[in-house]
Nucleic acid binder design. Structure first.
Lengths: 245, 245
DNA sequence: CCGGCTCGTTGATCCAGATCAATCCCGGCG
DNA sequence: CGCCGGGATTGATCTGGATCAACGAGCCGG
């Protein structure tokens, strides 16, 4: 740790890298990835770290969109509600993911912590101003947005055209793939969300998700270590079922 | 017209604005919107205009993503296929929309002209290089991508949680809203796509789309001027049904 | 003018997944 | 220890939309 501190002091910047950035475990995956220490330092100047308890809201649809966030720990769900309460979860976010980007005055969706979550929070106005001076950051955000857009299109295929079985299998493979990218164990894969959240993400009901999981288990395609931990026993067969992911 | 030509010549650029840009009807809606004449001129330097016949492909999923496009006339559908041929249309594009942005080597979806279509085509590599020098353009693309992302999330709600009736009504309102933005007649609204395309966009079958339309007609909520032209007779009632758009 | 398209509409039947309902399991708490 | 409440599973039934099938209306090419 002393070594790290010294390294930071040796940097040409007036201030050393702030502590949360110094120890950041997601720097390489996050929006910050393309920035050098000096640039990161400027960005960190606007940043506040925030901790959120499980099941606590981060922001709600139609709140003023005054901040954007990077998830650095935990897991977040984002969702939209219909007036009568039906819910569609549009994404699960994990460390490294960016949260709250919009080009309107209000957020387009609600965000809630699923587990204990740690965030870096940036005031939107100040960040936007800084973007003009850090084109690398803007490029990075554009890249991340394109990536999310592609994921959203995959999700439309899933919701519009896949059977319940295909949806559940696609979901498990997606989770596992995400874990790989973050360097976490991918098989068995952690499933931190409830069955209800899975259902609202896949456009199904809890019952159908549950039935489908036990069906997959019966067919020896997966193994439920426990409710929140799934082994994908026959990845290739699963990929076949998922239909191209 | 003479006046416009003179204005262009009076610009400080060595060359006047190329003809297609000079007469561009979508400049204010498109990615080019934030550029001044001089910047637009640089961008136009890489640009080729392309005409596509109805039902002709523009590019296919998994083609090398070497170009990006702005739609300047006509109508385009973008879609993804499952291995067995099931299709999900992920978007309909109209003049001003941007097409083909990805941050991978390959396109993530296929694009096909629905009607006679005119495009501005840009070589991707050259455009990316130019982005470094035109930060306004990069900002604009980020803005457009955020906007598309929000639309994609709305579509996920539609596909995951809405009934057939709600989907069809949402779709008609969406079309009408788009027409307003482009300054085109919004009621009655033009419906340039086939019933089949509508079905593949809404995650339904042709039959269900057709039945739902006649049901809405019977209830005097809409009026079918002809197959490609729909009057929204009771907008407020329709908005109620759509559930928040 | 006719046959053979494609597109749209309508009718009859079927079924995947929703809904309704019961039970189980587990962790927290008096 | 026993109670309580939220999540998960399993079973029985129902239904919205898919599927299968027939037909009508433009439209093109010969």
């Amino acid at each position: 740790m002393a070594r790290l501190t010294i390294a930071a002091q040796a940097d040409r910047q007036p201030q050393s890298l702030p502590d949360p950035c110094e120890n950041c475990g997601v720097r390489d995956f996050s929006a910050c990835a393309p920035l050098n220490d000096s640039e990161l330092c400027r960005l960190a100047g606007l940043m506040t770290t925030v901790n959120i308890e499980p099941h606590q809201p981060i922001f709600s649809e139609a709140d003023a969109a005054d901040h954007v966030f990077t998830v650095t720990g935990g897991a977040v769900k984002i969702y939209k509600l219909l007036p009568d309460g039906r819910r569609q979860i549009t994404g699960f976010l994990f460390p490294g993911d960016f949260l709250g980007l919009t080009h309107n005055a209000l957020y387009a969706y609600s965000a809630e912590a699923m587990t204990a979550t740690r965030l870096c929070r940036f005031p939107r106005k100040k960040l936007e101003a800084l973007l003009d001076e850090l084109p690398k950051l803007e490029q990075r955000l554009l890249g991340m947005a394109s990536h999310e857009l592609a994921a959203a299109q995959d999700q439309m295929v899933l919701l519009g055209r896949k059977s319940a079985r295909e949806r559940v299998v696609s979901f498990l493979l997606m989770l596992s793939g995400g874990a790989v990218r973050r360097g976490q164990p991918d098989n068995p894969v952690a499933v931190p969300m409830t069955r209800n959240d899975i259902a609202d993400f896949l456009g199904l009901t809890v019952e159908t998700v549950s039935r489908t999981m036990t069906q997959l288990k019966t067919q020896h395609l997966i193994e439920l270590m426990d409710e929140k931990q799934v082994r994908l026993s026959r990845i290739e067969a699963l990929r076949e079922i998922a239909g191209g992911f």
